[in-house]
Design a protein around this nucleic acid. Structure first.
Lengths: 275, 275
DNA sequence: TATACTAATGACTGTTCAGTCAGTTTGTCA
DNA sequence: TGACAAACTGACTGAACAGTCATTAGTATA
């Protein structure tokens, strides 16, 4: 297995059980069965490892949610999103635990900005979804709804993550959809009004440059083996340098790489760039 | 000023800004203008300081909420509680920030148990309140409602704590009351049903012993100066050793000490013991 | 087989920091 | 005034730990 991935997986386990502070690099390398030096071949520092872990998880979830919102056009979106989120929490329980336990805003400024960035994207996606589902009718309360939704997710995430039994994902999603629906149709006194909402969130997510994308493609090409994915990446790279295919083809190529774990984030960024 | 209090206040500031890990005992003592040795006269260890800070805050809020629920008998309770909670968050922004940033489950098992204890009390209090307001009608969804309420508080706490402008406490409370009311009247598909709810929460909050209470009274007596409070404490102590007054008198005595910051928790425990 | 190159090792270094303790100051009371 | 105690000081200690680097193992190429 890829050494970087090995280290990330094993350290997530340790972090989730003991916390970051109490997990030494030594311990991580011992648990991985590698030497301390090998660790520093993969990551420049312990902090970089932590950043990488958080990035990885946030990117997966962000790309997944975006995909659901983009491909669903019925009222079903909300259900799909909740289902996806809680399924991810369940599947990566260790990671989610780690994220919940150590909301390391404190670790460094870097992380704080990073998290704000993902939150902004999430807010924007939720907003798009709410507008799609409910149209104009919720205009006055849309920002308020976003905070309510995030709060609800948080509250129920606790149950999902810290309860070890099996959970009815369908029920939890259905139940939350009902709550949001009830709120959307009945709220008359939002705390976050239109003005304050727009003040809170300036939706300027800076666009990624073509060069950055190409270098990301190059990195991915080195890491993956599957031929279809490789070919798709090469073709996409060519298209970036010199546009030569129509939207449908590009869409298909992006779809080809969407489910490869190492390309999920890249596919999300590509899609946003093309649009 | 009391040295213990000085250390707590100053370190909360530092913790909120830099995180626990990056704040050394050295730095705390320098910021307080005392020596390192003096720190260890007040606290046995850095961990003990952290525990003390968290205990202090949780005890204040727990006692306050309990008081609201106990003394209000109209639908107003919900509003009062939200108002109280968010006012506390605002007033002790540093502390709340510190608590949100480092959900130190990880620090040690001690803290985890401690937090679970306060959560249990909060759950019980919320439950009592919901039953008082809505009666039998919400029986099927009461546990679900508790999680929804906690989630909403969490979501909106973020805004209150990390936004530096002034906030309309009345509006936020009103807005949340509306949300809970809407949910209480419309939810039909709870995620946490009656059975699972009772499974989650076993409401066995162990009772405190008479001896413990008396020793707590003794400690408080040493610390406070106000004569009314002192007299009340002495009388309450006598009553504990040999019951000699009726409920009304005891109630009044407890009320006398309720608003002294060093006695809030004691008054809460006394009230629970007497009942 | 020799050579060149990369991957991996783990003993070592420098630093940070919680906690200690021998000694000093301040306060109290006879 | 002096005896005694309580409060306070800060230089010091030892442990933990992130990060380095000289050396070795492994592998590809000529």
């Amino acid at each position: 297995m890829n050494k970087k991935q090995l280290i990330m997986e094993k350290s997530i386990e340790l972090f989730a059980n003991q916390g970051i502070k109490k997990t030494s690099v030594q311990q991580i390398t011992e648990y991985c069965g590698i030497s301390k030096g090998a660790f520093y071949l993969s990551f420049k520092s312990k902090d970089e490892l932590i950043l990488a872990i958080i990035d990885h998880f946030m990117q997966q979830i962000t790309a997944d949610i975006d995909h659901v919102v983009r491909t669903n056009h019925t009222k079903d979106i909300l259900y799909q999103i909740f289902h996806k989120i809680f399924k991810a929490f369940l599947q990566h329980r260790d990671l989610a635990k780690f994220l919940m336990i150590e909301q390391n805003h404190s670790l460094n400024k870097e992380l704080l900005t990073r998290m704000q960035y993902y939150h902004k994207i999430a807010d924007k996606t939720f907003l798009e979804m709410l507008e799609r589902i409910y149209g104009e009718s919720i205009n006055e309360i849309k920002y308020d709804l976003i905070y309510a939704i995030k709060g609800l997710i948080n509250g129920y995430a606790d149950i999902v993550i810290f309860n070890n039994g099996k959970l009815d994902l369908d029920l939890i999603a259905t139940s939350l959809v009902e709550k949001v629906d009830i709120l959307a149709k009945n709220i008359t006194t939002p705390f976050i009004t239109l003005e304050t909402g727009e003040m809170f969130q300036d939706f300027l997510i800076e666009e990624i440059s073509k060069e950055k994308l190409i270098s990301m493609i190059d990195t991915s090409l080195k890491e993956i083996e599957e031929s279809i994915e490789k070919e798709s990446l090469v073709t996409l790279k060519q298209h970036l340098i010199e546009p030569s295919y129509n939207r449908a083809i590009i869409n298909g190529l992006i779809e080809n790489i969407r489910n490869h774990p190492d390309c999920k984030w890249l596919s999300y960024l590509l899609r946003r760039y093309i649009r």
